[in-house]
Structure formats: structure tokens, C-alpha cells
């Protein structure tokens, strides 16, 4: 009977940690709902979901795989930008939309491939490799745009394409949200229900054990970095369509938030392991705090302070609950 009791223990512990993030989430939600009139309106929530959550979440899903594999990707912003740059430039040059879209995702894929070669083949540490790609990517953008000029496609010719991507909806659900749902479903299956995800987690847990267990570590890592880049590329396309332009270096805004969301998400698992659900919670928390603080009237700089405090609070709460248990 003690056996059956202990068998239930880890689940309890997990839910205790999950509780930390949920408590923070619900608590802040209530604070914002009572303090800012505009917060709890359908328009605002929809706006946060479509414009903040979707874009960040898709990037963060990719980062979740990278962190699971024991690495880090500082170049996801570059993947966002490259997809956006190529997509917008292709449209501007009169290329058909589907082709431009494919080219944009292809550009992101190349960024991932470059990371993969540096990390999986040349064995450069993920931090340094992706930092290098970040620098190169930023320079490439400046060179390609005459020092960082945005490319605006505001004429009517492009409105149809952009609207089809960012403003349309299916069954009352905006297309970007559908894209997110598909991405979540696919990545959840890949990370939590397929051999791929288990192997990636083994690499992250102990690369030597993974290698000695017959896992092809280099090819798995290659797939992970390409996946992260392509997911970031999807955000790049959605972003271009939303702002109807390519703005150099705009992808960087996602970098730290995506990494932050992933790590906030690790607090919900007993092993402090990244998970799709955890990352989504992390993204939702960050997006809500930013929006809420804005509506309460904090200025941009204080928002950053608020997010910093939030991260500490979630971690402290989660560790505290776990220790007590």
C-alpha cells in the first residue's frame, strides 16, 4: 500500500510546481482585471492573443526543443528577421505569395542549418555558435537594407495577401491562432509522444549516455536547430503580414522572451525540464504581464522591471512549494 502511495507522489509534486505558475497567472489576471478597465475586454484579450501570444509562442516552441537538447539558440531573432526580409522582398519583387512564403521559410531554415553545422558538425558550443550567427544575421540585414531601412508594402496590391494571413479567420478563430494551434499540436506530439522528443531530452540530460545508447546525436541536434529556426520563420511571416513590412532587427524582441518563457515553463516539471505546456504557460504569463502593466499605465521601462520581478517570484514560489513538499 505504501507502494501505491509513493506511485502518486511525483504527480502531486508536479502539480505543486505547476501551481506556482498558475497561482501567479491567476493572481495577476485578477489584479489586472480589477485595476485596468480595458484589460478584461474581448477586444484586448483577442489583441493580446493574436498579436503577442501567437508570435512569441511559436518562437518559444522552437526554443523549447533547443533547451531540451541542452543547448540555447540566440539566433531565433535572426530567423524571424530573415524569413520576414525574404518574404517581403519577394513580394516586393512581384513573386507569387505562396512562393514568397516558401522562400521566407527557406531563409529561416538556412539560418537553422548554419547553426546545426556549427553545433552538430563542428562541435562549437551552442551559445557561441548562435551568438556568432546572431551577429552575422544582423550585419546581413543592415547590408541588405542600406544600413537598416525598413521595407514597407503598404499599397493595396499587398493588402489582400497580408490580410489573408493575419486578418482572416476560420470558424471565428483568427488564422494566426490556427497556425499556433497546429504548431502546438505538432510540437507537443514530437516532444512528448515521439521517439524524437525522448531522444532530444536524453541528449539534453546527458549527451554521453545518449551517444552510448546509440542515438545519432549530431543528426538529432541538426533537426532541433532547423526546427527552431523554421518555427521562428513562421513567426517572421506572421509578423510581416501583421505590420505589412519588414523592419530590420525586429526579431530580437522575441529572443529573450522566448528563452524566458521556456525557462519559466521548466518550473512546472519535477525534473525542471522544458515542456510544451510549460512554455505556453510562460508565454501567456509574459504576454499578460506586459499587456496588463501597459494598461495600468506603467511605462515601457517599468514593464521590464515588472517582468524581472515576476520571473523571480515564479521561481521562488515554485522552489519553495517543491521544498516544502
Amino acid at each position: 500500500m505504501s507502494l501505491s502511495l509513493s506511485r502518486h507522489l511525483p504527480k502531486d509534486r508536479e502539480s505543486f510546481s505547476t501551481l506556482a505558475v498558475l497561482v501567479a497567472f491567476v493572481g495577476l489576471f485578477l489584479v489586472f482585471a480589477t485595476q485596468a478597465d480595458a484589460f478584461l475586454t474581448l477586444g484586448n484579450l483577442r489583441n493580446v492573443l493574436v498579436n503577442n501570444v501567437v508570435l512569441l509562442a511559436i518562437v518559444a516552441l522552437g526554443v523549447t526543443f533547443v533547451v531540451s537538447s541542452g543547448g540555447i539558440d540566440l539566433s531565433v531573432g535572426v530567423s524571424v528577421d530573415m524569413a520576414s526580409l525574404v518574404f517581403v522582398s519577394a513580394l516586393a519583387a512581384g513573386v507569387a505569395a505562396p512562393l514568397g512564403l516558401a522562400a521566407g521559410l527557406g531563409a529561416a531554415l538556412l539560418v537553422g542549418l548554419l547553426n546545426a553545422i556549427l553545433i552538430a558538425r563542428l562541435k562549437i558550443s551552442p551559445f557561441l555558435a548562435t551568438l556568432g550567427v546572431l551577429f552575422i544575421g544582423q550585419s546581413v540585414q543592415r547590408l541588405a537594407t542600406g544600413g537598416g531601412q525598413p521595407i514597407y508594402l503598404v499599397t493595396k496590391d499587398y493588402a489582400e495577401i497580408f490580410n489573408a494571413i493575419s486578418r482572416s479567420s476560420l470558424l471565428g478563430v483568427p488564422t494566426p491562432v490556427w497556425v499556433l494551434i497546429l504548431c502546438v499540436l505538432a510540437t507537443w506530439l514530437a516532444l512528448h509522444r515521439m521517439g524524437f522528443g525522448r531522444q532530444v531530452q536524453a541528449i539534453g540530460a546527458r549527451p554521453g549516455v545518449a551517444w552510448y545508447s546509440g542515438i545519432r546525436v549530431p543528426s538529432r541536434l541538426t533537426q532541433v536547430y532547423i526546427l527552431a529556426a523554421v518555427l521562428a520563420g513562421i513567426t517572421g511571416i506572421l509578423l510581416s503580414a501583421t505590420v505589412r513590412s519588414y523592419v530590420p532587427m525586429s526579431g530580437n524582441a522575441f529572443l529573450l522572451d522566448a528563452i524566458g518563457a521556456t525557462f519559466i515553463g521548466t518550473t512546472i516539471s519535477r525534473e525542471r525540464r522544458p515542456s510544451i505546456l510549460g512554455t505556453l504557460l510562460g508565454v501567456a504569463l509574459l504576454a499578460m504581464v506586459k499587456n496588463g502593466l501597459l494598461l495600468i499605465g506603467w511605462n515601457f521601462y517599468w514593464q521590464q522591471v515588472g517582468i524581472g520581478v515576476l520571473v523571480f517570484a515564479v521561481l521562488a514560489l515554485s522552489f519553495g512549494l517543491q521544498r516544502r513538499h
Partner: peptide, 22 residues
């Protein structure tokens, strides 16, 4: 070297046992 190559100590018993034969 069991800890470096044999078992991933931060993974569960189950995940370690099935990792090579998923």
C-alpha cells in the same frame, strides 16, 4: 563510466530503460 555514459541520472528509470529501443 556509468554516470557519464551508462545512465542519465536526471531521467526516470523508465526513460533510461527504453531510450535505446523506443
Amino acid at each position: 563510466d556509468r554516470r557519464a555514459h551508462g545512465v542519465a541520472t536526471d531521467m526516470s528509470v523508465r526513460d533510461n530503460i527504453t531510450i535505446a529501443s523506443l
